[in-house]
Computed example of a mutant assay.
Amino acid sequence: MNDTLQHLYESTLDHPEQYQDFYQQLLASQVYCLGERDAEQHLHFQLMETEQGEQAIPFFLSLAMLQQDVGADAEFVMISAEKLFAITKGASLVMNPTSEHPKEFLADEIDAILEFAKQQSL
């Protein structure tokens, strides 16, 4: 499914009207984050620095992309994108940070995506 999601994202670059579909599918998908769970099952994410010098949490649409970019032995957690957005409220996230077309999600954008999803489920 995430290959389809990646293609949908790339399509939004030329067709911004497809962002709504992309966000809906993203929230329903599992993503891969650099990090680990501690003994109490708390998540600890690795941070990266954006081009603007800000701290962000990187995540990947596929395990293959994560391993290609970071290495096969990278520690990661798989989590639903909706849960990732909800538990990292206020943080910036970067999807596929080393790809040709990374996507940065700022806190306000994440709030809007989650609010839209909530309204769709009512």
Rank of each mutant, 00 (worst) to 15 (best):
F45I: 05
F45C: 07
R37V: 10
A74E: 09
A64V: 10
Q41S: 13
S92C: 11
I57A: 09
G71C: 07
Q52C: 07
P102T: 06
Q52W: 03
E100I: 05
E75R: 15
L61Q: 04
M65L: 11
F76W: 10
I57E: 10
M95F: 07
A39E: 15
F59D: 02
S80I: 03
E104R: 11
I110A: 07
E49F: 04
S99N: 05
S99L: 01
M78L: 12
M65T: 08
D73P: 00
P102D: 02
G90Y: 07
A72K: 13
F45T: 08
P97D: 04
E109H: 14
G90I: 08
L66T: 04
G71S: 08
F60W: 13
M95H: 07
P58D: 09
I57T: 11
D108M: 11
H42Q: 15
Q68A: 13
A56G: 06
E109S: 14
V77P: 00
E100A: 10
M65Q: 13
P58F: 06
A107M: 06
D73Y: 12
Q67H: 13
T98L: 14
E54W: 04
E49W: 03
F76T: 00
F85N: 03
R37E: 14
E100M: 10
F105I: 09
F59M: 04
L47E: 15
G71A: 02
E104Y: 05
F59Y: 13
P58K: 02
A39C: 09
F60G: 01
E54K: 06
H44Q: 12
S62Q: 12
M65V: 01
Q52I: 00
M78I: 15
L47F: 10
A56Q: 05
A86L: 13
T50R: 01
E54L: 06
M48K: 09
N96W: 01
A91G: 07
A91D: 12
A64I: 09
R37M: 09
G90N: 10
Q52V: 07
K89H: 13
K83M: 10
E51K: 06
E109L: 15
F85K: 00
R37N: 09
E82W: 02
D38L: 09
Q55M: 15
T88Q: 01
A81R: 01
F45G: 07
M65F: 06
I79F: 03
D108R: 11
M65G: 04
A107V: 04
F105C: 07
E100R: 06
E75H: 14
A64P: 00
V70C: 13
S62R: 10
H42V: 11
L106V: 12
I57Y: 03
S92K: 11
I110N: 05
F76K: 00
G90D: 11
E75D: 15
R37G: 02
A74Q: 11
L66F: 00
M65R: 12
Q55E: 15
E109P: 08
E75A: 15
D38R: 10
A91R: 13
N96G: 02
M78E: 15
S92Y: 03
H44Y: 12
L66W: 03
L66G: 04
E100L: 12
K83V: 12
S92V: 01
H101P: 02
V70R: 10
F105M: 11
L47H: 14
I87N: 06
Q55P: 02
R37H: 12
